[in-house]
Design a protein around this nucleic acid. Structure first.
Lengths: 244, 244
DNA sequence: CGGTTACTTGACCATTCTCAACGCCGGTGG
DNA sequence: CCACCGGCGTTGAGAATGGTCAAGTAACCG
């Protein structure tokens, strides 16, 4: 199977040199078992991570033990970047399936910023894309009902799984527990359960073990409270490159 | 009054050249009246903005008209960066007070990425800081009660106002309506009102017209559900510059 | 096959929302 | 200068979405 470099080429096509740099990351693989932490909040910021295989959650812990999952990462994602601005890590990275990550010391990022403007622009835009995703999630969680949140998340997940080539025959692996969904969407496990049941009673999705199928993506989109933003791809890079 | 460049120097001290670049931004000032949009969702991504004076809100609109404010920006903030990754703007930027912004075409950002690695690293880290802030807000909104959300927001605002030198004698201007607070925290106006009353009945804050005073910041911090993250400042830049 | 973990369901509870009315304050026009 | 108007803030009563507690069931793992 091809390493998931799709997200790195989304905004800037990589030159041969740049592709070499990226491939070099794979030299350092770290395998992580399901539910194990890759890095916890409060630990030193020793690296960022390229997610090679598996799913990983980024979460914040509140003082009383409640937890908010802020992102479910899929293969090809870069993890841990926000903590580069912090004195110690601000997010816990936890494997949601068995996973493989490639740790990149902050110096690698610095070197790219210093020496490779194209790749730097790609990273920069990728980071902005993540900000948009966070803004969207905040909108779901802050302004919509349980059902709408679930729909919005499933659609977003679906689209990202398609991009990562992980949807087969319209269905995909779904390793999240209902507890995870609750912590992601700001709901209790019990209510996630009821809402999920409602969703598949209406025939919009089908759950079986650790798989899920969205039966009619178009119909589900119409039930969603937000419209997925349209990313600019290459055009974003062109804008950066053509000061007016 | 000094232009608010504090946020640009947070991670990387600017060289004389770099300071010149930044000062050059001020050449192009755009004044915006309170409640006027600087840029709406869906419009072309013509620029990002440096906020010179005043407060600005970034918000997303849902299909049914509900709105989520994702950030209240203060002087010194850079606005509109997430939309650089999008085909058309993903957030509406609305002046919450009379404001002055300096529009920067995307090409200016591209030029910095291409030619000025130090400034680029500063921007990059600033952006990561914003991501951390968004993650925190998501945690408040997703995982805490109305009272805790309000406290968390007020503390965060307070700290940022202090950094921008906008707190005088322990009190600060507070131009947000209760509706804004609701849209920011995922609550209705009515409930914001009740919660605010509860807050000042307990004597933790004092409201008068368009000002607010936090009577005991330390005590309020103890009542908060999250701990504000510690930003790395210069150290973050050092990490980037010293690949291990 | 036993034990653990996740999922499911029910009954009850509470935080927050909805709807509605009213008061205050600032601005505007006569 | 005063009267009106509109926006914002405030308060009350009742409804509802989602939370809590609890128990039971199904799936998975060693």
């Amino acid at each position: 199977m091809q390493p998931p470099y799709h997200r790195l080429e989304e905004f800037v096509t990589l030159s041969a040199d740049e592709a070499e740099i990226v491939k070099g990351w794979a030299a350092n693989r770290r395998e992580v078992k399901r539910y194990r932490a890759i890095r916890r909040e409060g630990e030193p910021v020793a690296a960022v991570y390229f997610l090679m295989e598996g799913w990983v959650g980024s979460s914040l812990m509140l003082r009383d033990g409640r937890r908010q999952i802020v992102k479910v990462h899929l293969p090809g994602d870069l993890l841990g970047f926000p903590s580069l601005a912090l004195a110690s890590a601000g997010e816990t990275l936890e494997a949601l399936t068995d996973a493989v990550v490639c740790p990149l010391p902050p110096g690698v990022v610095g070197k790219i910023l210093a020496e490779n403007p194209r790749l730097a622009a790609g990273l920069f835009l990728s980071t902005q894309k993540e900000r948009v995703a966070l803004m969207q999630q905040l909108a779901w969680v802050g302004a919509t009902s349980a059902l709408e949140r679930l729909i919005a998340f499933l659609l977003d997940l679906h689209d990202r799984l398609v991009a990562a080539n992980l949807v087969k025959d319209g269905s995909f692996e779904f390793p999240l527990t209902q507890q995870h969904l609750g912590e992601l969407l700001g709901l209790t496990t019990v209510h996630v359960n009821r809402t999920l049941r409602r969703l598949d009673e209406t025939g919009l999705v089908e759950r079986s073990r650790a798989r899920m199928r969205i039966k009619d993506v178009q119909e589900l989109r119409e039930a969603a409270a937000t419209v997925a933003p349209l990313f600019a791809g290459q055009e974003a890079w062109n804008r950066l490159g053509n000061p007016s």
